[in-house]
Design a protein around this nucleic acid. Structure first.
Lengths: 169, 169
DNA sequence: TATTGTTATACTCTATAACTATA
DNA sequence: TATAGTTATAGAGTATAACAATA
């Protein structure tokens, strides 16, 4: 039985007015997930603004960097991005000269992806900056907390995904 | 027999085609947050489909239910929703006869919000269903894990929000 | 002048269907 | 026929700017 009350309070109590009663929300995993994800996303965007890179793009760059020659479909499957939605994403990365598409030798329908030299260079910088971002979080919840969080999130994803995963089509 | 191609005969490695290397992603809080949040959102949507209620809408209903008479701006602030984006949300809830807008007596610019009787009734059902949803998660990570998760997420939100919170305008 | 609700608009991510060219 | 990439489109959520009524 989930307890409605688990976590202290909410921030949104500006200068004056009485605090708002959030009911069961502060104790719900789903609500906390939404708020935390949004906050982390904003933090990420701010930190990577100079690079013009959004979280999703860094995900794509990572997969391509670690798996050169992978096809679009498989990159999408690895990240839970439908192949239709990957197209404009790759278009931008390609136009910026970070990723290259190449007809696959083994199947002329497929595109084999790899990073350009510029892409490799940028990716290295991004990794460093990403580590800083992660360290910022660790600073507040500790390395133990961070690991536990990652572990719990993976389980939640699995639990929710079992019945209806991010299957492609 | 010259086979210039990379690999001749066993291209389809069955179901498995070698696993993709995700690099640092699986260990990153941000990445895990995104995947877990998406999975939880899908799970929520499936469970609440019969009610035609999305997570954001349940958030609004909760705040209005627990704080009758609250203004739109304050509801938005409590949930991290900008007041411009709250308008269409409330329009739908009002058209469905769940929420009512009323000119505030203390400030004729403001709208005081409250649930209709139908809104109250629906909200009670939603709460029950929400508890089931939460119990489903608890079943996998345990009550201790669930509490710890909620606690960690609140801290992450705070950590990321300190520098750039969801301030309105 | 400042604030509340509103309108209008744009951008990101997600989702589905249908097309093409290969297989 | 089935699949990979593509196109087109739609929806939800978020973001900013500006306007009318009110303070």
């Amino acid at each position: 039985m989930p307890r409605p009350e688990t976590v202290p309070d909410e921030p949104e109590t500006d200068e004056g007015e009485r605090p708002v009663d959030l009911g069961q929300l502060p104790g719900l995993v789903g609500y906390r997930l939404r708020r935390a994800q949004l906050a982390a996303f904003r933090n990420f965007s701010r930190r990577f603004e100079p690079f013009g890179i959004r979280p999703t793009q860094l995900g794509v760059l990572t997969i391509v960097a670690r798996n050169p020659g992978l096809t679009q479909s498989r990159v999408g499957a690895a990240l839970g991005i439908k192949r239709a939605n990957l197209v404009p994403l790759l278009n931008e990365l390609e136009e910026r000269g970070l990723v290259a598409r190449e007809r696959a030798s083994f199947d002329r329908r497929s595109h084999a992806l790899h990073l350009t030299e510029a892409g490799e260079a940028l990716f290295r910088d991004l990794l460093a900056r990403e580590a800083e971002h992660e360290a910022e979080i660790t600073a507040l919840i500790g390395e133990t907390g961070r690991r536990r969080l990652v572990e719990l999130l993976a389980k939640v994803e699995q639990a929710c995904g079992d019945a209806a995963g991010p299957e492609d089509e």
